[in-house]
Design a protein around this nucleic acid. Sequence first.
DNA 1: GACAAGTTGGCAAAGGTTTGCACAAATCCC
DNA 2: GGGATTTGTGCAAACCTTTGCCAACTTGTC
Lengths: 335, 335
Amino acid sequence: MTRRTRATTLKDVAEAAGVSISTVSRVFSTPGRISPETADRVKEVARRLRFSPNVMARSLITGTAPNVGLVVPDISNPYMTTLLKAAQKVSRSHRIGVFVADTDDDADIERHVCEQFAQQTRGVILCAPRMTASHIREIAQLVPLVLVNRVVDGLLSVYTDSRAALRELMDELVGLGHERIAYLPGPAGSWSNKQRARTVTERAKTLGVELIRLEPTAGLHADGVDAARTVLDFGVTAVMAFDDVLAAGLVEGLRRLGRSVPDDVSVTGHDDILSELVHPGLTTVTGQSSRVGQLAVARLLETPGPAETTPTESIGVKATVVRRRSVAAPDSRST
Amino acid sequence: MTRRTRATTLKDVAEAAGVSISTVSRVFSTPGRISPETADRVKEVARRLRFSPNVMARSLITGTAPNVGLVVPDISNPYMTTLLKAAQKVSRSHRIGVFVADTDDDADIERHVCEQFAQQTRGVILCAPRMTASHIREIAQLVPLVLVNRVVDGLLSVYTDSRAALRELMDELVGLGHERIAYLPGPAGSWSNKQRARTVTERAKTLGVELIRLEPTAGLHADGVDAARTVLDFGVTAVMAFDDVLAAGLVEGLRRLGRSVPDDVSVTGHDDILSELVHPGLTTVTGQSSRVGQLAVARLLETPGPAETTPTESIGVKATVVRRRSVAAPDSRST
DNA sequence: GACAAGTTGGCAAAGGTTTGCACAAATCCC
DNA sequence: GGGATTTGTGCAAACCTTTGCCAACTTGTC
């Protein structure tokens, strides 16, 4: 590994081009301020010398860095990797770097990384935070924040809105003849989980069917596997799981107990992240995480305008139902 | 969102504590240089004022930032998310931030993000790069580099060494009676793919069995599904796939063609990332990606020593075989 | 009591950029 | 053709920290 040479600075370019430092600076940061001839000459020299402005110096003086932060509870969840990819794409087109922190569902780590990122970013996209709302508000004082899949009064947020899709899904289950349906919850601290639980509970009441809320889980595949026994004990004919990971676990758990999906039990998931991997294909709800990631970055980067003009309400990205093979009429168990 | 107030600086602390700026600075950056009494007083004031040193100013003067970069071809691959988590954990313990870039298998993007990260990081961990070796060497002039799953002369690297495990796996297949085995390749640009292909080819020659190298794929699940037909056409009884994603696709493709695993065909994967999700459980090779990620960060952070003393050879993390249900004797098809 | 050695803390430069202000030259208006 | 305006460029301060060097003070030694 050869010794790295000192990077070329504005000063080097200025000397080589026979102009002052400020002129070179303005060529890049204030287009139109310098005459075309001078600008061209400077650009030429800069290119020859491979000049690239020092980010630290620039950030020090402007008080803002060309980065954003992305804080997620668990990066191994495909919903998040898809969101990350979309966020990256938008960021890259603005030449913005992306810090990523996986918090492992730990609220303390969430707070720490937000503080850490505060200095080095334009803002942080905080996904499905486990923190209390008041902690989140504190962080928001420190660094511009966009929330994902969580809504806190007065803060910007973008979330997957699957209420309509979940209602539709439940309507279909009931339409097929299911009368005892279970909801298999995700992490207790998750706002999305609360939303989904509430939505299906209310809809069940409206439709006059029985809804059984199972014990909260951590949202792991193994939790889904474990839930199979309880599901059978309750004697439900359909289960709506918090997400695809739990749903897949449940399918596996049922298989181990000698039951099959959808013949014995219908199962639905959420996020559409395991479509290809699970058999039978899961009927689920698309998370649209790409769109969510894209919007979140966009909101973050447009924030710096006059504070008054930036919209402050949250954006719900509508989810839709994806029908595959894991749902059937309850009677089909006789096949 | 309330107006964020100016951050407190060394100067503020110095004034409040009645000492000079340099004293405050030394309290934090040169422990022992300042008398305990003064140091305590300063720390107390600093805490009260919520002082945290300005990263940009510090980086500007020290010429090094408290970050590392992680560049991966595809973050949605669980091998990479596991690696990322481990890398984060180590980084966090050093209070180092992690930039992440997903390059989508694009060599140009790889180069660009490395250049972008050069200024803002201590170094970059470049995973399974698609670039040519000479491009990689160019980048290495620009920013300290640790390669993952690729070996380039003279550069530091950490990789999963699965040669022994693959030989073992093939020995087992042959021991079970398989005599025509196929290798289902991953991305053509992948160094790991070349390694694995070479390893199984050589071992097959040694054992005197026939090895069929299928067409290169992009490594997607769909590619695995598509490969099922070719596999049947070649009439092999076992397939060793580049990784678990391809293996899972192949299992699904075979199922669609009415064949089952392992009764009709034995299938092995690599990386052990889909253990729970696929049925039957895949016999595979553990990628040890956690360990790889951990070592990669460690190497990067210890680099700054006198250039001569840093070890320059590569570290191979030994992979091991994980036996599940996707392998059986070729005769068992009659069951 | 003088001198050396060690401790403690301050001054000021340096790092590379942005930007308010000033100045000079060119252009315009009547 | 002289004053007003516009255009193009430079000077120097500012952003906040680290750090080499120096000054002052304390302690120890003979």
